[in-house]
Simulated scan of single mutants.
Amino acid sequence: MRVSVPTIPHAVTTASSKPISPAVAVERIVDFLSSGSVTLLTGAGVSVDSGIRAYRGKDGRYMNPNYQYYHELVDRSPKGHMFRHASPCLLRSYLGYPPVRDALPNTTHCALAALQYTSHISRLITQNVDGLHRKAIAHVWHDNLINERMLELHGSLHRVHCNHGHVVDRNTFQDWISAHNPYWKDYVTGLEATGMKPRTNPDGDVELEGVSYDDFVIPECPQCVLEGRHNTNQKPTVIFFGESIPTIVRNRSFHDVERSDRLFVVGTTLATFSAFRLVQHAVKLGKPVLLLNMGATRGDGLPGVEKIEIPASYVIRDVARTILGTRATADPVIVDLLNKGIYDPPSDR
């Protein structure tokens, strides 16, 4: 399954839905989550309140014109080598990673974590590469349990790998880039000192104007050097457009849908087929699907799919409190989760 540039048919983006009150939305979601095991599928809309922009504007238009294709980044020919060194992709990612790294889970992440902790959500599949779902529950669950119950469908910004499979922590890779690019290190330090943040997309890319990338140096993979080869072919462990999702991840995503009774979809337009196909799979298996998203989604009008259009931050915490009842005030772990989370949407959302 290759990831292509997200698109939504115009007829879908221009469709309208009926308004719904938060109270009615909470009641419907509570009823849905209270009936059998549930797999949750999330997208960029969940992270907007953490200050990370969604992929799409209000008109449904894809907002990042700087995307690059996988084959351009990994081409082993001299042409590919020239492209990587002339391409600003890694530099933009270097500049855009700190805001994502420092982002905090919002109220929706934390309320969903409470429902994960109590097994009302049995499996979570996220398209997001920001790691915020993991961060929301990391103090409650150990890594093995997180990896068992949570799947990052499109990878993670927090790791980098070379084309020979050597993986490194993202902070270490950032240090490598800083060591090779003192000018850009100073540039980032200056941004942080003034509190300025570049306009960052959910994939860690940024938008900069009037900037020259000619002097940017891509560091070599140290492990490859030890093995006797020179290799600057490195990228974040994120699925790029034109890249295939690993078979083990694809199969796991379908299996997570199959092993649950229902599919709850939050904060995604389903424009990427890797996510939309999971909804199609649930429908094919006769499993109820509930969408919670502001704006049009590719799943709108699909037989067997119900849609609620209201911001998740308006309802999810109340949903969790209603479902959990007295545990919401008696269990210290749940109390902590339901009182955590920031609300800091980007000003240009």
Rank of each mutant, 00 (worst) to 15 (best):
Y187M: 13
I239H: 00
P219I: 03
A271S: 14
H158M: 12
M1E: 08
V38G: 01
E148Y: 06
R76W: 01
E227L: 14
M196I: 12
S47P: 14
R349L: 08
S244C: 08
K307Q: 11
A282S: 10
G57Y: 13
G43Q: 05
C89F: 14
P219R: 06
G60R: 01
T172P: 00
E306G: 09
N64H: 00
L33S: 08
G341A: 06
P222D: 08
E209R: 11
N293A: 15
Y314R: 15
A179W: 04
P88Q: 06
H158V: 11
V38N: 13
Y55C: 02
V238L: 01
Y69T: 13
K79D: 15
L132T: 11
S260L: 10
L292D: 07
S119I: 01
A138R: 12
G155N: 08
L153Q: 07
A138C: 14
I218E: 06
Y94P: 00
H120D: 04
L338K: 15
L337K: 10
R56V: 04
I316A: 05
G210F: 04
A25R: 02
S37P: 05
M294L: 14
D348L: 00
I310E: 08
L73C: 00
L338I: 04
R229I: 13
I316T: 12
L278E: 12
H71T: 02
A114I: 11
R229P: 10
K197H: 05
D318Y: 08
N339S: 15
D348H: 01
R123C: 10
H85P: 10
I323A: 03
E72W: 02
S77M: 13
A193N: 04
Y69G: 07
L191P: 04
A330M: 09
G228H: 06
R349A: 13
S313R: 14
G325C: 11
S50W: 05
C221V: 11
I121Y: 05
A23R: 06
A44H: 03
E148G: 01
E207N: 14
K197F: 05
V225K: 11
T172I: 09
V129P: 00
P246F: 07
R199T: 10
Q280F: 09
I8W: 00
L191D: 10
G36D: 12
I334C: 04
V12A: 11
T194S: 13
L337M: 13
R229N: 05
P236Y: 09
R84N: 02
E192I: 07
L324C: 03
P19S: 13
D300L: 00
I125H: 03
S17H: 13
H10E: 14
E306Y: 01
V46S: 12
N64Y: 02
A54Q: 09
D169P: 10
E220G: 05
V48G: 04
A179V: 03
W141K: 06
G304L: 03
D102I: 02
